[in-house]
């Protein structure tokens, strides 16, 4: 791992990039929150609760994008055996799970005043919940084995399986929902969104994406450092063992 030039170069570049990314995401998020809370008008039907959407929608987008990144990274690990791909997949999973949870929680907080219940078995909610379970499965499988290399490859296989099966799950949940629950759920029409709400949403989405990139890069750097520490520790143990073996043993 240390012999490869790429992680070292990654550490150099990311160290330079990270402060800028963090500052940019803080700025854009601050601007987005200001627009969401003070500029965007309350919805004529939903009132002030519509502001939850400015957190909720970007979280849901990122929840999906994050799974995409895990899938691409897993593919990179399995095909090219690139260690950074594994670092990326490992770092992205908890962040993606956090965004998915954020989307679920904000969604149910929005649902209570709008639908009268914290949880409604709406097709989208259900698919996002299953996405959350997949994230949990990925994280649990990675922690299950002591052998890090084995665990990372197994997790990559599960991520690829999830990529194949996620669209099927989405399709089946849509089918199930239209069957069990005729369209009673009010939704915001995407393209009919008024510009006064669209702009804050887009700014928030950009802010969330920047935030994700910052967190992902930071987590990847941590992971690389963690692995380096582990390698150094193993080397020290090996050296100590070798020097002890070289010493003349006391006669028994």
């Amino acid at each position: 791992m240390l012999q490869l030039a790429n992680p070292t170069r990654f550490m150099q570049y990311s160290a330079r990039l990270l402060p800028w990314l963090a500052a940019a995401s803080a700025l854009v998020l601050a601007l987005g929150l200001y627009m969401a809370f003070f500029v965007a008008p309350p919805d004529y039907q939903q009132g002030e609760t519509v502001r939850i959407m400015f957190i909720h929608v970007p979280s849901a987008w990122l929840a999906m994008m994050c799974y995409g990144i895990i899938a691409v990274s897993s593919f990179g690990l399995l095909v090219w055996r690139h260690p950074l791909a594994d670092v990326s997949a490992k770092a992205a999973a908890p962040i993606g799970a956090a965004f998915t949870l954020l989307a679920l929680v904000t969604g149910s907080l929005w649902g209570k005043p709008m639908w009268g219940a914290y949880w409604v078995w709406d097709a989208r909610l259900t698919s996002v919940l299953i996405l959350f379970f997949l994230y949990l499965g990925l994280m649990a499988l990675r922690r299950a084995s002591d052998d890090d290399v084995l665990a990372s490859r197994l997790t990559a296989i599960l991520a690829i399986v999830g990529t194949v099966i996620l669209p099927i799950i989405k399709f089946s949940v849509d089918w199930w929902n239209t069957l069990h629950q005729p369209a009673s759920v009010m939704r915001l029409g995407g393209p009919t969104l008024h510009p006064s709400m669209l702009w804050p949403l887009l700014v928030m989405a950009l802010g969330f994406t920047l935030l994700f990139l910052t967190l992902h890069l930071a987590a990847m750097r941590n992971e690389v450092l963690r692995r380096r520490v582990a390698v150094l520790r193993e080397a020290r143990v090996a050296r100590a063992g070798a020097s002890r073996a070289a010493e003349p043993q006391p006669a028994e």
């Binding site: 299953i130 997949l134 649990a140 296989i157 599960l158 399986v161 099966i165 099927i168 199930w176």
Partner: peptide, 27 residues
């Protein structure tokens, strides 16, 4: 196959596999 040789793999197995059964169950 994924949870092979893992301690208490059965628990993990159900966590991994049950979400994948959603389409089968629904249809």
């Amino acid at each position: 196959a994924l949870t092979l040789g893992i301690n208490r793999g059965g628990l993990l197995l159900s966590l991994i596999v049950l979400p994948l059964y959603v389409p089968v169950l629904i249809f």
